[in-house]
Amino acid sequence: MIINNLKLIREKKKISQSELAALLEVSRQTINGIEKNKYNASLQLALKIAYYLNTPLEDIFQWQ
């Protein structure tokens, strides 16, 4: 199981879903879906999320 901390980290950094989506060149709905565990981010997208949030990938998506 993967624990998804994207919403928590994004909100801590005061970045909206729309802002993050624009940086990543995806839709806001994609970010929303990832945060609600409706969609799994591809490895490429997960790495981009970590880069733009300046946060280690394993802090955003944790295996349990």
Rank of each mutant, 00 (worst) to 15 (best):
M1Y: 14
M1S: 09
M1F: 13
M1T: 11
M1L: 13
M1D: 06
M1C: 14
I2L: 12
I2H: 08
I2V: 13
I3D: 06
I3A: 10
I3R: 09
I3V: 14
I3Q: 09
I3P: 05
I3N: 09
I3F: 10
I3K: 14
I3C: 14
N4V: 06
N4L: 07
N4H: 04
N4Y: 02
N4R: 03
N4A: 03
N4S: 04
N4I: 06
N4G: 04
N5Y: 07
N5I: 08
N5H: 08
N5R: 08
N5Q: 05
L6C: 08
L6A: 01
L6V: 06
L6F: 00
L6S: 01
L6I: 07
L6N: 02
K7W: 04
K7H: 07
K7C: 09
K7R: 14
K7E: 09
K7D: 04
K7V: 06
K7F: 06
L8C: 15
L8T: 15
L8R: 15
L8F: 10
L8Q: 15
L8I: 14
L8M: 13
L8G: 11
L8Y: 10
I9H: 06
I9S: 02
I9K: 02
I9A: 07
I9V: 11
R10E: 02
R10G: 03
R10H: 03
R10V: 04
R10P: 02
R10N: 02
R10K: 01
R10I: 05
R10A: 04
E11W: 06
E11A: 08
E11Y: 05
E11Q: 12
E11P: 01
E11M: 13
E11T: 11
E11D: 08
E11G: 05
E11L: 12
K12V: 08
K12A: 15
K12I: 10
K12F: 09
K12L: 14
K12N: 11
K12Q: 15
K13F: 10
K13I: 08
K13M: 14
K13P: 01
K14V: 05
K14I: 04
K14T: 05
K14S: 11
I15E: 00
I15T: 04
I15D: 00
I15Q: 03
I15H: 03
I15Y: 07
S16C: 06
S16E: 04
S16V: 04
S16N: 05
S16T: 13
S16R: 06
S16G: 07
S16W: 05
Q17A: 07
Q17L: 10
Q17P: 04
S18Q: 13
S18E: 13
S18I: 11
S18A: 14
S18D: 12
S18N: 13
S18L: 10
E19V: 09
E19N: 10
E19K: 14
E19Q: 14
E19A: 14
E19F: 08
E19M: 11
L20E: 00
L20W: 03
L20I: 04
L20F: 05
L20D: 00
A21N: 02
A21S: 06
A21Q: 01
A21D: 01
A21F: 02
A21T: 02
A22Y: 10
A22N: 13
L23W: 14
L23Q: 10
L23E: 07
L23D: 06
L23C: 10
L23T: 07
L23P: 00
L23V: 12
L24T: 12
L24Y: 00
L24M: 07
L24C: 15
E25I: 05
E25Q: 14
E25D: 14
E25R: 14
E25V: 07
V26G: 01
V26N: 01
V26T: 06
V26C: 07
V26L: 05
V26A: 02
V26P: 01
S27W: 04
S27G: 07
S27D: 13
S27F: 03
R28C: 12
R28P: 15
R28K: 13
R28L: 15
R28I: 15
R28E: 15
R28H: 11
Q29W: 12
Q29L: 09
Q29F: 07
Q29S: 13
Q29C: 12
Q29A: 14
Q29I: 09
Q29Y: 09
T30R: 10
T30M: 13
T30S: 05
I31R: 01
I31H: 00
I31D: 01
I31N: 01
I31S: 01
I31K: 01
I31L: 12
I31V: 12
I31G: 00
N32F: 05
N32M: 14
N32V: 14
N32E: 15
N32I: 15
N32C: 08
N32W: 08
N32D: 15
N32G: 08
G33K: 15
G33Y: 13
G33W: 13
G33V: 07
G33D: 15
I34A: 02
I34H: 02
I34Q: 00
I34F: 03
I34Y: 02
I34G: 00
I34L: 09
E35K: 02
E35F: 03
E35I: 04
E35P: 01
E35C: 05
E35N: 01
E35Q: 02
E35Y: 02
E35W: 03
K36I: 10
K36T: 14
N37P: 01
N37G: 15
N37C: 11
N37E: 05
N37V: 03
N37I: 03
N37M: 08
N37D: 07
K38V: 13
K38R: 12
K38C: 13
K38S: 10
K38E: 14
Y39D: 06
Y39C: 14
Y39M: 13
Y39Q: 12
N40Q: 14
N40A: 14
N40S: 14
N40Y: 12
N40K: 15
A41N: 02
A41Q: 03
A41T: 12
A41G: 05
A41P: 15
S42H: 06
S42K: 05
S42W: 05
S42Q: 05
L43E: 07
L43Q: 08
L43W: 13
L43S: 06
Q44C: 13
Q44G: 13
Q44I: 10
Q44A: 14
Q44Y: 12
L45Y: 01
L45F: 08
L45W: 03
L45Q: 05
L45H: 02
L45G: 00
L45P: 00
L45M: 10
L45N: 02
A46P: 00
A46I: 07
A46K: 11
A46W: 13
A46R: 10
A46Q: 10
L47S: 10
L47D: 05
L47G: 07
L47I: 12
L47K: 12
L47Y: 09
K48C: 08
K48S: 07
K48W: 05
K48G: 06
K48Y: 04
K48A: 08
K48F: 04
K48L: 09
K48R: 12
K48N: 07
I49M: 06
I49H: 00
I49P: 00
I49N: 00
I49S: 00
I49G: 00
I49A: 04
A50Y: 04
A50R: 03
A50P: 00
A50T: 03
Y51E: 11
Y51I: 08
Y52P: 00
Y52G: 03
Y52M: 11
Y52T: 10
Y52F: 14
Y52D: 00
Y52S: 05
Y52A: 13
Y52I: 15
L53Q: 00
L53W: 03
L53R: 00
L53N: 00
L53G: 00
L53I: 03
N54L: 06
N54F: 05
N54Y: 05
N54M: 09
N54V: 06
N54W: 06
N54T: 08
N54K: 11
N54D: 15
T55G: 03
T55P: 01
T55Q: 05
T55H: 06
T55K: 03
P56G: 05
P56L: 05
P56R: 09
P56M: 05
P56K: 10
P56S: 08
P56Y: 04
P56F: 06
P56Q: 06
P56W: 05
P56V: 05
L57Y: 07
L57I: 11
L57T: 03
L57C: 07
L57K: 02
L57N: 03
L57W: 05
L57M: 11
E58P: 08
E58V: 09
E58H: 13
E58A: 12
E58T: 11
E58K: 13
D59K: 10
D59F: 09
D59H: 11
D59M: 10
D59A: 11
D59N: 09
D59R: 08
D59G: 06
D59P: 02
I60E: 01
I60M: 05
I60F: 03
I60S: 01
I60H: 01
I60P: 00
I60V: 07
I60C: 02
F61H: 01
F61R: 00
F61G: 02
F61N: 00
Q62H: 09
Q62F: 08
Q62T: 10
Q62W: 10
Q62K: 11
Q62E: 09
Q62S: 11
Q62V: 13
W63G: 06
W63A: 05
W63H: 06
W63M: 07
W63F: 10
W63T: 06
Q64P: 13
Q64S: 14
Q64G: 13
